[in-house]
Design a protein around this nucleic acid. Structure first.
Lengths: 197, 197
DNA sequence: GTTTGTAGATTGAACGTTCATTTGATGGAT
DNA sequence: ATCCATCAAATGAACGTTCAATCTACAAAC
């Protein structure tokens, strides 16, 4: 597998994302992906073992891009945590509203049986060195900036509001207003920051 | 179609919910639904025009049950709004954590192309008399109890945190703690209530 | 009280299509 | 001359849907 193949994989990924948005996993046949990517089906099977494998790798690809984007340039210091937090949250929203195909895919993925498959795999070979939201929130507690409550409460507040808002922007065709974003990032921050700091 | 048929439909609905949780829409063939419901495929097609129609009706069925459950006994008066709100939010979480099959289905539905189909149908024949969350939040603004901001911001805060928390309970196998729920309902309320009332 | 008629409910085998995957041949680069 | 990439046709299984036949319940007719 040479340098070209990453490009080829990426072409396949992008085609899959576009088609998935309108037709869903099972409404998108391999043949259609091939056609859109201007390849033959056989070629896709040269790069991916199966359709499931393609989806799973696509998930990892999307997630890596998201994480790289939202955590770029964060300092993780006590003084900067509030700033970092707000920056990260805004970027999370921005990433997905800028790339709705990514959002549709991730969203479908998380609510599908694939998600379970992916969880099981990660248990077999854990690889937690990459920055992720859970670690970022845990760091916030360590730095005494976030309420010392369970990570999944914090995560629910962080992700939940963001995802729900992104949905209303993408599906509800609501145009995103700067003031709305400002309001919402404050709302999220206030709801989980440590009081009386 | 007599009185029996509602029962028969419900049997089909329940079987569909159970199978959908593990296998998803397209991983659940009609034949399997029939088997689980102890019926033949033909019978399902007697009650539903197609698989799509079955899914769409199942959605309406689930949604109606959810709404009836969460809004039962709410007064919608100024004095009671905070109480109502917290009650409704808790019930929302309770309903879905008690009936994870419903959650898995609704969650899949909302992130699938079916959702768009359903939206389009509702536009053709709107039927907004049934209580729903959007109206409930709008009423909160009218009563001067919620921040006078756009409905979809309020909705994002309400639904987003709830859904995200429900997910962590159902999929993350986290057991729901009473204190966590209390914390979270406060968190949501504070984040969208009207200040200085 | 028995027979007959009828409409709806139920069945499951059969049909046609679609799809993921395989395969064996072809092309091109080193 | 070997190895990888690419292709498109072939395969076979799975699936949604149809349909003609059978069953059930019940009411009308006698």
């Amino acid at each position: 597998m040479n340098v070209q193949s990453t490009n080829k994989k990426e072409v396949i990924f992008q085609s899959t994302l576009v088609l998935l948005q309108d037709n869903g996993f099972h409404g998108t046949p391999m043949s259609q992906i091939a056609q859109h990517a201007k390849l033959s089906v056989g070629t896709i099977y040269h790069y991916f073992e199966s359709k499931e494998e393609l989806i799973l790798e696509l998930f990892a690809y999307c997630k890596a891009q998201l994480m790289d984007f939202i955590f770029d340039g964060t300092t993780l210091t006590e003084e900067q945590y509030e700033n970092d937090f707000k920056k990260v949250w805004r970027r999370f929203v921005q990433f997905y509203t800028d790339y709705p195909t990514y959002f549709c895919f991730m969203n479908q993925f998380y609510s599908s049986p694939f998600h379970e498959t992916e969880r099981l795999r990660k248990l077999q070979q854990p690889n937690e060195d990459r920055a992720n939201i859970q670690n970022f929130l845990a760091r916030g507690i360590e730095l005494n900036q976030l309420r010392d409550t369970s990570i999944h409460i914090l995560n629910s507040a962080f992700t939940g509001v963001a995802v729900s808002y992104i949905k209303s922007v993408i599906f509800g065709k609501v145009t995103m207003q700067k003031e709305e974003l400002d309001e919402m990032v404050d709302l999220v921050w206030k709801s989980i920051k440590k009081e009386y700091v």
